[in-house]
Write a protein that binds this DNA or RNA. Structure first.
Lengths: 187, 187
DNA sequence: CAACGGTTATCTATCAGTTGGTAGGTGGGT
DNA sequence: ACCCACCTACCAACTGATAGATAACCGTTG
């Protein structure tokens, strides 16, 4: 009942990469297995169904993101600097094979997502908004409807990534983020 | 060689609705045919392949959007009011069955899109950015890198729609857009 | 020490359902 | 008689999923 964590982790990592490129719908067991270097049926030893794999990938995704966000807060005492570093997380996906945020891709697919997967995707958005809410409240002091502002920042940065990816041009991302900053959205 | 425009238009309309809900990947001939009230094979009478159908849908989509944008400019002389009305277009998709902008969905799927479809998706983004560029230049006078600002607005509004759709809550869209306005992104 | 038995991790083989796509027929309007 | 619009019937490829074999490992036992 221990399970080889090496294989399990390798499957999770490859599935994440694939889902960030092709979505949940485009994720398939044969290509995934080939990528990992095993056979398709072996995946079922670790994940009883595609829905379970998808949910595990999405859960791990927001857990990793949450850790990255905490790391920013730890490394960067100034909350304004934290906020300005927020787009880094989305930029990294573009750097790493022009990939989309898993949360964005699965949000688009939400109508065809198993309930368990949808729930993890929701949580991804929630932890982003909560972090942003905390940070902008630290910058400006607690103010009315800071959550609305946090959602606006999250939506805007997600959109920037989507546009930059469609152009396969990371400078578009930087340019859009810079415009957000100039306009005062990131403060 | 005339072709029944009724059927062709019905296929295009149903395919658009399906693609805005399930994406290009989730679009399939059998469900599409059922929706239209014909048989799957009949679609091939109008569109020789899925790629051709997808390209036709995407093309029609940006043509329709372009017409809507022109209508705003015609109905609304004040360019600032035009800009404030821009989100209406994205809001409409949410009102209409919580659907996503076809450009956004296909942008996400871009890695699995036939070249012809990708090209039309690109054009959709281009006409949006061009319209926004014209409008904000009319508001503020021609200014440096207005295209960058136009891209920022397009990205932000797209992101707002994606987030609101994932929540199935149109008030999230309105709230985010209002934040963009307050912050001065929509000016 | 060597043989044994069970657990772990993986495989081969196969299935049923779905998909895009094709061949060729049919019926109604002109 | 023709041809437009649509049909039935089918195929090959791909999908998620299952059943059952197998090989490596590992502590226990004769």
């Amino acid at each position: 009942m221990t399970m080889n964590t090496g294989s399990r982790e390798a499957i999770l990592a490859a599935a994440r990469r694939s889902a960030q490129t092709h979505g949940y719908n485009g994720l398939n067991f044969r290509d995934l297995a080939t990528e990992v270097g095993i056979k398709a049926a072996s995946i079922y030893y670790y994940f009883p169904s595609k829905a379970d794999l998808g949910a595990a990938v999405a859960r791990r995704y927001w857990e990793d993101t949450s850790a990255e966000l905490e790391a920013i807060r730890t490394d960067t005492p100034d909350p304004l600097m934290c906020l300005l570093r927020y787009p880094e997380i989305f930029r990294r996906s573009l750097e790493n094979g022009n990939r989309l945020c898993l949360g964005s891709f699965m949000s688009a697919e939400q109508h065809d997502l198993p309930e368990t997967v949808k729930h993890e995707v929701q949580t991804f958005a929630d932890i982003n908004v909560a972090w942003l809410d905390t940070v902008i409240s630290a910058i400006n002091g607690v103010f009315p409807n800071s959550t609305g502002r946090a959602r606006a920042i999250f939506a805007a940065v997600s959109g920037a990534q989507l546009l930059a990816r469609s152009r396969s041009d990371i400078t578009v991302f930087d340019e859009v983020i810079e415009n957000y900053r100039e306009v005062g959205l990131l403060k």
